[in-house]
């Protein structure tokens, strides 16, 4: 498994949805690479295309959506255009996904043991007893007490946090190389959020898996991710090392996101927010998609900016806040 190059490499990925009201460019030219064991925070507002990026990697984009261009390589192997059966063998095996709402991801009418063992037996020929033993071990690993009893339970007998633990256990059952976590803590209580975050980080690190953590919450990825990619309207507008991006955001959108985190604002002060709303992906304006909400927008922004890379950082802006140390701030 000592493949040269990154573990996962996404290049020029475009996933479009062909709806009646036009082509929705949910993911439009997204590129990033992920090394073994690395954690990438994929940050953006609702509708920025971050979940669809995850689905595209997993091969789970449903019609009318389709990957129209780009390449996704897992350990050097091209996934775009791979057959159904080959893709199925990778899903849940080499790469796994955890969804946002744990109340919805487990099948309500099937017992936990069955939902776990079927995941193992979809990829390996093992006896029912062996699969069950592995399922039990996985439950123990995610910190579920009395696993034997829990295996025989149905999802409705679990709390939300417990269900998410089960979903994480299922995702990690076959020791995948890549885990895509699609806002797995958003639907949970704040106290549980922290626990799940911590567990997930620890478990993927122990398993040596790379992790893509999709979230709209910058404060979540701050302590978790090695690198951050900020998405806006289907594009990555800024990426770089977590600490760099958070301390010196280069894109005005990233700046806006950071400013709207409550804890960064002085107490009692009015919360800052980014004016306007995310644009409709079906009718994106020409040029920079953010320019209508951007305080720094100028005439140049009528043309779409290209990604400017330097030293492991990239920004897609004509007038970046740059790496100027003394940026204006509170």
């Amino acid at each position: 498994m000592s493949a040269p190059g990154p573990l996962l490499e996404v290049a020029g990925l475009r996933t479009h949805f062909f709806t009646r009201s036009g082509v929705v460019k949910a993911v439009d030219d997204v590129s990033f690479a992920l090394a073994r064991g690395e954690v990438l925070g994929l940050v953006g507002e609702s509708g920025s295309g971050k979940s669809i990026t995850g689905y595209s990697i997993m091969g789970l984009v449903d019609p009318p959506g389709r990957i129209v261009a780009g390449s996704i390589r897992l350990s050097g192997r091209e996934l775009v255009g791979l057959g159904h059966e080959e893709m199925r063998r990778l899903r849940g095996n080499r790469m796994a996904m955890v969804f946002q709402d744990p109340m919805m991801t487990l099948n309500p009418v099937m017992r936990i043991d069955r939902q776990m063992t079927e995941t193992i037996r979809a990829h390996e020929r093992v006896s029912a007893a062996a699969a069950r033993a592995r399922a039990r071990a996985a439950l123990v690993a995610v910190g579920i007490p009395s696993p034997d009893e829990r295996l025989a339970s149905y999802p409705h007998q679990f709390s939300g946090g417990m269900r998410q633990r089960v979903a994480i256990a299922i995702a990690l059952l076959n020791r995948p190389d890549v885990v895509i976590a699609d806002e797995p803590t958003t639907a949970l209580d704040v106290t549980i959020q922290g626990q799940i975050l911590h567990e997930m980080q620890k478990l993927t690190r122990d398993a040596g898996a790379a992790l893509i953590w999709i979230t709209h919450d910058l404060s979540v990825v701050a302590g978790l991710a090695d690198r951050i990619a900020v998405m806006y309207a289907g594009r990555i507008v800024e990426h770089g090392r977590c600490a760099d991006v958070l301390s010196q955001p280069a894109h005005p959108y990233t700046r806006g996101l950071l400013d709207s985190v409550p804890s960064r604002n002085p107490r009692g002060a009015r919360l800052r927010q980014i004016p306007g709303m995310t644009p409709s992906l079906a009718a994106l304006p020409e040029g920079c998609a953010f320019r209508e909400r951007c305080p720094r927008a100028g005439p140049a922004c009528a043309q779409a900016p290209a990604m400017q890379e330097s030293g492991g950082r990239g920004v897609r802006c004509h007038d970046p806040l740059a790496a100027v140390a003394a940026t204006a701030g509170p």
Binding site: H84, L90, N93, D101, M104, T105, N107, P108, T119, I170
Partner: peptide
């Protein structure tokens, strides 16, 4: 979501 999750687990379409 449980259908999508089932597919994400790598189950066959028939299953």
């Amino acid at each position: 979501d449980y259908v999508k999750f089932a597919r994400a687990k790598g189950l066959s379409n028939a299953r």
